[in-house]
Design a protein around this nucleic acid. Sequence first.
DNA 1: TAAACAGGTTTACATTATAAACTATTTTAT
DNA 2: ATAAAATAGTTTATAATGTAAACCTGTTTA
Lengths: 93, 93
Amino acid sequence: MFKPLDPLLHSQLRLAIMSLLISLEEAEFTFLKEKTESTAGNLSVQLDKLEKAGYISIEKSFKGKRPLTTCKITSEGIKAFEEYVDNLKNYIQ
Amino acid sequence: MFKPLDPLLHSQLRLAIMSLLISLEEAEFTFLKEKTESTAGNLSVQLDKLEKAGYISIEKSFKGKRPLTTCKITSEGIKAFEEYVDNLKNYIQ
DNA sequence: TAAACAGGTTTACATTATAAACTATTTTAT
DNA sequence: ATAAAATAGTTTATAATGTAAACCTGTTTA
């Protein structure tokens, strides 16, 4: 009935991040920050958790002279997200 | 885009409780405990929070000689649940 | 009448989330 | 040239939250 909800995804900010990445495939730190209306600190921490879980990959480079952090969802991340959504539906229908 | 998710509802156990109550209108403590597969302690705490938020009402009585706790969703609870679900959909589509 | 069970509640602890403070560098203003 | 402000983040301290273990009160069973 109520399957457990992946705690890594059952978090407002991380879910928003994953939601964006699943449709965009790739997004910059600043873009995610704007879209999710989060603080940089919070975003940084949550991206770290998603990366450590293997749900996203993070690439660091430079855009001109400025540091640039680019995030991409992994296939594992897509799978986890889809399973989370499936499970969640049992709670909200 | 990403409307804030009511933190009171964005919790696996409380969401499961509300999900049950929204379709059943009324449920006993032990029933909720079984259906949600939660411990009594955790359930007790979460029911308290939902009651304090005005999302459910709790009535205490006796079934024979045994104490009986009956939970019921309030109209405020229904409204909050529906809004939560609406907001959540923006995250999972 | 002692032990086990029912139906919870309280509390202690661990986990989590979040923002404030910080670092490093770059751009702008003086 | 240099001080001030802005960019792009990271680290860390604290508050909030979730959870189970321990507890309580009464009841049933051995």
